[in-house]
Measured scan of single mutants.
Amino acid sequence: VTTYKLVINGKTLKGETTTKAVDAETSEKAFKQYANDNGVDGVWTYDDATKTFTVTEMV
């Protein structure tokens, strides 16, 4: 189990959250659901070296 981080650069929501998951794909699903639940829709990137997802909304 690995800890993954999500950085949110939204128009109205900014911040970070973490989750523990067995792999990046599992954490990505959880993070995308979290973003969707909070009305964040944007461009996703992933940095495997830091286990960090970033979602950026276009303004």
Score class of each variant (00 low, 15 high):
F53P: 00
K14M: 08
Q33V: 08
V40H: 04
T18G: 04
N38H: 14
K11N: 10
I8R: 00
T18S: 12
F31L: 05
D47Q: 03
K20C: 14
D47C: 09
Y34R: 01
E16D: 06
L6F: 06
M58C: 13
V22R: 11
W44A: 01
G39M: 06
G39W: 04
N9L: 14
Y34N: 01
K11Y: 10
Q33L: 09
T19L: 15
Y46D: 01
V1C: 15
T54R: 05
A24R: 15
V40M: 05
E28K: 12
E25M: 13
M58V: 13
T18I: 10
A24S: 09
T3M: 10
V55M: 04
T52A: 03
T17D: 03
V7S: 03
V59F: 12
A35T: 07
E16Q: 10
E57D: 08
D23G: 04
N38A: 12
D47F: 03
K5A: 04
K11V: 14
Y4F: 10
K51W: 05
K5P: 04
T3N: 07
E28G: 09
T18L: 10
M58D: 13
A49S: 11
L13I: 13
A30S: 08
V7I: 14
D48E: 13
K32A: 05
S27K: 01
T52R: 02
G15M: 15
F31Q: 01
T17C: 15
E25I: 12
L13P: 04
D23S: 09
L6H: 02
V55H: 00
T50Q: 05
D48A: 13
G42A: 01
G10I: 11
Y4L: 02
V22A: 12
Q33H: 06
A30Q: 13
G15V: 14
Y4A: 04
Y46M: 00
G10Y: 06
G42H: 01
F53R: 00
G42C: 02
L6D: 03
W44G: 00
A24Y: 15
A24F: 14
K32D: 01
K51C: 04
W44H: 00
T2W: 11
V40I: 15
T26F: 05
V22G: 09
T26P: 01
T54G: 02
K32F: 05
T50Y: 04
A30M: 14
K5H: 12
T56I: 07
W44F: 03
L13A: 08
A21F: 06
T26S: 11
A21Y: 04
K14H: 10
V22Y: 12
N36D: 11
T18E: 10
V59C: 13
V7N: 04
D47V: 04
V43M: 09
S27M: 07
D47K: 02
K14P: 06
D37M: 11
V59I: 12
E25L: 12
L13H: 11
D23H: 04
F31M: 03
Y4G: 04
E57M: 07
A49G: 08
T2K: 11
T18K: 06
N38C: 13
V43I: 12
F53C: 00
V59K: 10
D23C: 05
T45K: 07
T50K: 06
G42V: 02
Y4W: 07
V22S: 11
T45F: 09
V43R: 07
L13S: 07
Y46C: 00
T3G: 04
T18A: 07
T52H: 02
M58R: 11
T17M: 15
A35Y: 02
E57K: 03
T12E: 09
T2C: 13
T56V: 07
T54Q: 05
K14C: 14
M58K: 11
A35I: 08
Y4S: 04
D48Q: 09
D47H: 05
G42S: 01
G15R: 12
V40K: 01
T18Q: 09
D37V: 09
Q33K: 14
K32C: 05
F31W: 02
F31A: 01
D48S: 10
G15E: 12
Q33R: 10
E57I: 09
T52G: 01
K5W: 12
A49I: 11
E57S: 07
A35C: 15
D47Y: 03
G10P: 02
M58Y: 13
V7Y: 07
V55C: 05
T12Y: 14
K29S: 07
S27N: 01
G15L: 15
S27L: 04
V22M: 12
D48P: 14
V55R: 01
Y4N: 03
F53S: 01
V1N: 10
G10D: 02
D23L: 04
T52E: 03
T17H: 14
G39L: 06
L6Q: 02
K5V: 10
D41W: 12
V55P: 00
V43E: 10
T50A: 06
V1A: 11
N36P: 01
V40Q: 02
E28V: 06
G42Q: 00
D47G: 00
G15A: 13
K5R: 13
Q33Y: 04
T19P: 02
V7K: 06
K51R: 10
N36G: 09
V40Y: 06
V40L: 09
K14Y: 09
A24W: 15
T2G: 08
S27D: 01
V7D: 02
A49R: 10
Y4R: 04
T17G: 04
T50H: 05
T3E: 14
M58F: 13
E16L: 11
K14W: 10
T50I: 05
V7H: 05
T3P: 04
T12P: 03
K11W: 09
D41F: 15
T12S: 11
L6Y: 02
G42W: 06
K32H: 09
N38V: 15
V7A: 03
Y46H: 00
N9C: 15
N36T: 14
D47N: 10
D23W: 03
L6T: 02
I8A: 01
L13W: 14
L13T: 09
K14R: 11
Y34K: 02
G42N: 00
S27Q: 04
F31C: 01
V43S: 07
E16T: 14
K32P: 00
D37A: 12
D41H: 13
D37G: 05
Y46I: 00
T3I: 13
D23K: 04
N9W: 12
M58Q: 11
Q33S: 08
E16P: 04
A49C: 09
E57A: 06
T18N: 06
